[in-house]
Design a protein around this nucleic acid. Structure first.
Lengths: 259, 259
DNA sequence: CGTCTGGTTGATACGACTCAAATTTGGTGG
DNA sequence: CCACCAAATTTGAGTCGTATCAACCAGACG
């Protein structure tokens, strides 16, 4: 069994490896597939931390693919309240097909300095018309993205602050793991407590206290933007975390990469 | 008009009209397009109120299209808490392309008696390969569905109980309006206060009191499953409702239906 | 060094929850 | 058509989780 992708333990990542790793959680890719993904990632730009990649009201023109760094989708209310509705980590596409809409109904902001590919509709068409496995992979990506959004609705609607934050930490840890962005039991975690508050529907003060509880329970360490999961099983347990919504079980592995 | 005993089972609309109305909020359809939608709706079944259409863990085999009645997507937590993560009204597709996944990560339940089309992957392929305008429309549907899910995240995360319920009522009223399911300023509203609670992340008791406030404010009437919006402008205002996320502004109307 | 952002702490307030019971509604069968 | 039962709505009283407000502190940085 050969594993041609950059794997855990490798320190440097070639551009595009995150997407490929991610899609390979669902389906096998051929080297041509991977080359096509790399090709489409060639046109990228950097966005400074805390700047918008695209803002509510803008006309969407590209599909964005996060190559490195973290970003978030957020919506703002007239009374000033802000909700982070999703988070993007390397390998995540922002909005397949958005460019058919007239205007963005939300903004996408960089959490860290961001390296992001700008893919034109034409490039996307090329990808989907010539690479069926990638097309399937993109559909899977869409479905998982939707499932994550639903899980967030559940998270905010039904879980306590403690469970909620625990759940978010597990989700992000697992997502980063599938793109090879974890080391040992830890990962970068660039969200401020304020971001965490906006993502979970809590206040920063309460997030602070809840994180202290998580630390006191010896479930996590979180310091200087570094997260370490001390007891994943127990953390998943208290979060009532059920990984089925991430659909990481290689649904499409029966597809032959060389067909 | 039809008499008020509009009990479950009285369907006064021809099959397929809801979807067509809905997609035409985005793009013009030709009569062939409409015929194709009607064709694909021919294979339907009924589901009793309060029964699952499909349950978490099931292998998805069809795309479901709601022809009449209301349904909901919900997720349940091990501790018994339930979150309704989305609602389906006539004209809504449940899950384009789900069948590429191994197992459902949530359940879909009927709120009322439901008339629902079961569309096979092959039929979907036929639709998308031969009817580009429908394909575009389905993409738009996907994007709007995702936008609604994000708005729910915002709703539950940041709005007060009063704003939250007001927002949900406006959303449903507008969605029903685009498929011709409103009359005057009212519509069927089959959700119980318990459903409303599960959809908004509140308790039934609190929903009850909040509805009373909305009534006292002369914003709505809600009785015997009939909703009447007394002052839509003010209701949208208190809900901080911004309709942009529904993308009802005919983005694709430039597409010629007879091209 | 001062400034700034992010994190921490304490005191207090309130929105929403809980529990429990009463009431109304809707459906069903005698 | 009424009697009955279950489901849904309503009410009241008490509690709790999370918000709010206001300092204060630590590290990063120019």
């Amino acid at each position: 069994m050969t594993h041609p992708t950059a794997a855990a333990g490798v320190f440097s990542f070639s551009p595009g490896s995150a997407v490929a790793s991610k899609l390979e959680a669902f389906t096998k890719l051929s080297s041509d597939d991977r080359a096509a993904l790399a090709d489409v990632s060639k046109n990228y730009r950097f966005v400074d931390a805390r700047r918008d990649l695209i803002s509510e009201g803008d006309k969407p023109r590209f599909v964005h693919l996060v190559l490195d760094g973290w970003a978030c989708r957020y919506k703002q209310l007239p009374d000033g309240k802000r909700q982070i509705v999703s988070l993007f980590v390397p390998g995540d596409f922002c909005d397949l097909n958005v460019y058919i809409l007239k205007a963005m109904d939300h903004s996408i902001g960089a959490i860290t300095r961001l390296k992001v590919a700008m893919i034109t509709p034409e490039e996307m068409d090329g990808l989907t018309s010539q690479r069926p496995r990638i097309t399937q992979g993109l559909w899977w990506h869409e479905l998982v993205t939707a499932a994550i959004q639903r899980e967030w609705t559940l998270n905010i609607g039904q879980r306590t602050a403690f469970e909620r934050i625990a759940h978010l930490l597990v989700e992000l840890y697992l997502r980063l793991k599938t793109v090879g962005r974890t080391h040992d039991h830890g990962c970068d975690f660039p969200l401020t407590q304020n971001d965490l508050a906006d993502a979970t529907g809590l206040t920063a003060v309460h997030v602070n206290r809840t994180l202290q509880e998580l630390r006191k329970e010896k479930l996590i360490e979180l310091d200087r933007k570094q997260l370490r999961i001390l007891d994943l099983d127990r953390l998943m347990d208290v979060a009532m975390f059920n990984a089925n919504y991430l659909h990481l079980d290689h649904e499409g592995r029966h597809l032959d990469a060389n067909a």
